[in-house]
């Protein structure tokens, strides 16, 4: 029971990073993106490939490349890769606004999944990578659930305040201006393309960090954890909590992580519990968009 609570705390910590990254793009930049799980996956895979290598690794010859970097370096690599992926999609998709921007990110998400799934030489495709080493941070080896909570908490306290600062910085304000009236903001000399791309890059990099944390927490990754459903989950936790401020995303994260757990205690039949959960998410999205597009505690409603 104790470990169960610690597990939930770890997941909330990881998803909080994702929610606040997405908040920068959606709540401040006004862009709905459906490829955050893609960046998350890129981060997880990069982190894994940077960690799983070494002479004694059984998978070394099955992977395209692998290294045995220390944990912080691998996490940094994950951030760089996530940011790089975000720039790649942003350069193309940001030529559009509205439906087609969202659609391009959705397409990117699906293709990233296809690549991870089919490119066997990179990360064993559908088989996934197992045996990801436990993180060792400056000589402290992390094994116990509570140690993971501490690790995720430490990373959160480094990452999230940075994002909160960004929200209030001139950069965040210019994003807000672009969100509210893009043409007027551009006439004041704010480049929509540059600001949106930077926001995407920051979000991608932090999602990459979240991916690295996830990979070293579960020690096994495969592409199904980073598919479109995961992206939809991230979108719905932000939309549920509300975006454009600091309190919204954390409410969404806590509710969306705890809701399925609550359903577990209701005692649904196992055979379709997962499907039923998805159905509840689907209805939640519809009803939310109808009655409260701002989310539970948001400042910004989708436009």
């Amino acid at each position: 029971m104790e470990n169960y609570v610690l597990h939930l705390l770890t997941m909330i910590g990881i998803y909080a990073i994702l929610a606040y990254s997405m908040n920068l793009v959606t709540g401040f930049g006004g862009l709905l993106v459906f490829c955050l799980a893609g960046f998350y996956g890129v981060g997880a895979y990069t982190h894994t490939l940077l960690q799983v290598g070494g002479a004694e690794s059984r998978l070394a010859d099955e992977l395209l490349f692998s290294a045995a970097c220390p944990f912080p370096v691998a996490l940094l690599g994950a951030a760089l890769a996530g940011g790089g992926a975000a720039i790649a999609i942003g350069v193309v998709a940001l030529r559009f606004r509205g439906d087609f921007f969202v659609f391009a990110t959705l397409g990117f998400q699906m293709m990233l999944y296809t690549v991870l799934y089919n490119w066997n030489e990179l990360g064993r495709g559908a088989f996934g990578i197992y045996g990801i080493p436990r993180p060792v941070v400056f000589g402290w080896e992390i094994n116990q659930p509570w140690e993971y909570v501490v690790l995720v908490g430490v990373v959160d306290t480094m990452v999230l305040p940075f994002l909160f600062l960004l929200y209030r910085s001139p950069f965040g304000l210019s994003l807000k201006a672009l969100r509210d009236n893009e043409r007027a903001a551009e006439s004041l000399g704010i480049s929509a393309f540059r600001q949106h791309l930077s926001a995407l890059m920051v979000a991608g990099a932090f999602s990459g960090i979240a991916g690295g944390l996830y990979a070293s927490y579960v020690t096994y990754i495969d592409p199904t954890s980073f598919g479109l459903n995961e992206s939809i989950f991230i979108v719905s936790l932000l939309l549920l909590g509300g975006s454009g401020n600091i309190r919204g995303p954390i409410i969404g994260t806590v509710v969306m992580i705890l809701l399925p757990e609550a359903l577990r205690f209701v005692g649904l039949p196992d055979s379709f519990a997962a499907n039923l959960r998805e159905i509840i998410y689907g209805f939640a999205l519809i009803l939310l968009m109808y009655w409260r597009p701002r989310g539970l505690a948001g400042d910004f409603s989708l436009r």
Binding site: D99, V102, M289, R303
Partner: peptide, 12 residues
């Protein structure tokens, strides 16, 4: 409702 809201509902 805005386009994006309809799109999200459609996704739901």
């Amino acid at each position: 409702a805005s386009n994006s809201a309809v799109m999200v509902a459609s996704l739901g």
